[in-house]
Amino acid sequence: NQASVVANQLIPINTALTLVMMRSEVVTPVGIPAEDIPRLVGMQVNRAVPLGTTLMPDMVKGYA
């Protein structure tokens, strides 16, 4: 099963992502693939992302 990117903490709206904010986990539904974590660093979320939430492509500005 493919691992997805999951929020390791509450990520406030418009926050630029850092490695410490994300972890990989096998979840359903599948979100952004864990191998894209390096690409996500520095990108901003367009909404608040609660701890444990799977990051979906539409949550990250410029990802989709």
Score class of each variant (00 low, 15 high):
Ile11Asn: 00
Val5Thr: 15
Leu19Ser: 06
Thr54Met: 08
Glu35Thr: 11
Leu55Ser: 00
Pro12Cys: 08
Val26Leu: 14
Asn46Glu: 10
Ala64Gly: 13
Leu55Asn: 00
Pro50Ala: 15
Ser24Cys: 08
Val6Ile: 13
Val45Thr: 14
Gln44Thr: 11
Pro29His: 11
Glu25Val: 03
Val41Gln: 15
Ala16Gln: 04
Val5Phe: 01
Leu40Met: 12
Val30Pro: 13
Thr54Asn: 03
Leu19His: 08
Thr18Pro: 01
Arg23Val: 12
Ile11Pro: 00
Met59Trp: 11
Arg23His: 05
Met43Ile: 06
Val45Ser: 10
Gly62Val: 04
Val20Arg: 09
Glu25Phe: 04
Leu19Phe: 14
Ala64Lys: 11
Thr15Asp: 04
Tyr63Ala: 12
Arg47His: 06
Pro57His: 12
Met22Gln: 02
Ala7Glu: 00
Thr28Asp: 15
Thr15His: 09
Ile11Asp: 00
Asp58Ile: 10
Lys61Thr: 11
Ala48Thr: 15
Asn1Gln: 15
Val26Cys: 14
Ile37Leu: 13
Ala34Val: 05
Asn1Ser: 15
Lys61Trp: 09
Val5Pro: 02
Arg39Thr: 04
Tyr63Gln: 03
Asn14Asp: 13
Asn46Tyr: 08
Val20Pro: 04
Asn8Glu: 13
Tyr63Arg: 02
Met59Asp: 06
Gln9Asp: 13
Ala7Lys: 00
Leu19Gln: 04
Pro57Phe: 06
Arg39Phe: 10
Pro50Phe: 13
Ala48Cys: 11
Met43Asp: 09
Gly31Arg: 04
Ala64Ile: 12
Val41Asp: 03
Gly62Leu: 11
Glu25Cys: 04
Ser4Tyr: 13
Val30Lys: 03
Pro50Cys: 06
Gln9Cys: 05
Thr18Tyr: 03
Thr18Trp: 06
Gly42Trp: 08
Leu51Arg: 07
Ala16Glu: 03
Pro38Ser: 10
Gly31Cys: 02
Thr53Met: 14
Pro33Asn: 13
Ile37Thr: 12
Val30Met: 09
Val49Met: 13
Val49Phe: 02
Ala7Gly: 05
Ala3Tyr: 09
Lys61Glu: 05
Ala3Thr: 14
Glu25Ala: 10
Arg23Leu: 05
Ala48Gly: 10
Gly62Pro: 06
Met56Trp: 13
Ile37Glu: 06
Met21Ala: 03
Thr28Phe: 03
Val60Ile: 13
Ile32His: 01
Thr53His: 15
Val27Phe: 03
Gly52Asp: 11
Glu25Pro: 01
Ile32Glu: 00
Ala7Met: 08
Val60Ala: 02
Asn14Lys: 04
Met21Ser: 05
Pro57Thr: 14
Leu10Ile: 14
Val30Tyr: 13
Gln44Lys: 07
Thr53Glu: 15
Met43Ala: 05
Ile37Met: 13
Arg47Pro: 02
Ala48Lys: 07
Ile37Val: 08
Asp58Cys: 15
Val60His: 01
Glu25Arg: 03
Pro38Ala: 13
Met56Asp: 10
Leu19Glu: 02
Pro29Thr: 13
Ala16Met: 12
Asn14Arg: 05
Gly31Phe: 02
Asn8Cys: 03
Ala7Phe: 01
Arg39Asp: 02
Ala7His: 01
Asp36His: 08
Gly42Phe: 07
Gly42Met: 13
Asp58Pro: 06
Thr28His: 06
Met22Trp: 02
Leu17Glu: 00
Leu40Glu: 00
Leu55Thr: 01
Asn8Gly: 13
Glu35Ile: 14
Asn14Val: 05
Met43Phe: 09
Met22His: 00
Leu40Tyr: 06
Arg23Ser: 08
Pro29Ala: 11
Val60Glu: 01
Val41Lys: 06
Pro38Leu: 14
Lys61Pro: 08
Gly52Pro: 00
Val6Trp: 04
Ala34Tyr: 08
Ser24Arg: 07
Thr53Arg: 12
Gln44Phe: 14
Pro29Phe: 15
Arg39Ala: 05
Val26Lys: 03
